[in-house]
Amino acid sequence: MKIALCSSFVPFVLGGLRNIVDWLKIQLEDQGHQVEVLYIPQHDRSDLLIGQYANNRLIDLANQADRIICFRPFSYAIPHPHKIVWFIHHLRDYYDLWNHPSRDHPVSPEMQQLKNTLRELDTAALSEAKALFTNSRIVAERLRFFNGLDSEILYPPIHQPARFFCHSSNDEIVYVCRVQNHKRQHLLIEAMRHTKTPVRLRLCGKSGEEHYTTYLNNLISKNQLTQRITFENRWISEEEKAIILSGCLAAAYLPLDEDSYGYPTLEAAHSEKPIITTLDAGGVLEFVQDGRNGFIVPPDPIDLAAMMDQLYRKKQETQTMGREALKRIDELHISWSHVLQRLLQ
């Protein structure tokens, strides 16, 4: 079958949203399909949005592709008689974050109109799909609430999960993830001030926010935590990541209101490590079950510190929780065979 994978992108910005497309391409090609990936540049500036929407409607793959699978906004606006949508997220500033203080647009009548128009366009374009999937329960709920559309949850797996393994259990809680303010590495550093055991922390990842990196470094040195916290502010290769996770005590993933469980969660689970997260982490809470395969705590350094200490003190239980994390992957049908079966039905 000829399958076009269509998504939007910002050049040179890599990460989860690209991985889902690129990894699916590999899986489809392994199954003998011909795959074409189309990334259409997208800019989130408000005055460009409608034009970009219209641009996607111009793309005509009806005579070339047997089906298209669309991901990010506004790739699902591409018309096709056999359009499948694996919906990753809304443009959230015009949806659930419309009234959020973080939104940087003024609520003018023009913006109100834009919001309404985008929602109408989204609903119309998504309604054209032969099948509508989402990457998490939280995104599915938003689709139902804002667009009145039902969808099936299809959790995205990671590429070659077998490269992750469990080797041992040291004293470190690791957080392997892009270093960004909304990933909240600072909460873990602050928590380390309150721990009562020799538990250690390792933060790994590249930052695109220099001021945040500086802030983290200052926070570590100001609190005299340099002996107990390792901050590797660089790109960590996949091989390195697997090795770091294989020997750690547990993993942490504390994003603010994430759209899905996030690949760091899955990588930790494949490494048989429990995951510490927070009540406001969004989609992560669909994977982590408090006390079974990790801990869910308020986003507060003192609460986090208590759980970090517990993981350190009760290593036997920590290892059991790690094994439960691995089981959770199967429970949620997180596998490429399931993804292909659903997308190609």
Partner: peptide
């Protein structure tokens, strides 16, 4: 990295290309 523009109907193509906004490049 590459930007691959699908060939579409000629009349639409120029408008499509002019409407693309490239950032971070």
């Amino acid at each position: 990295e590459g930007l691959r523009i699908p060939l579409i109907e000629a009349i639409a193509l120029s408008g499509f290309i002019r409407a693309l906004e490239l950032e971070n490049t």
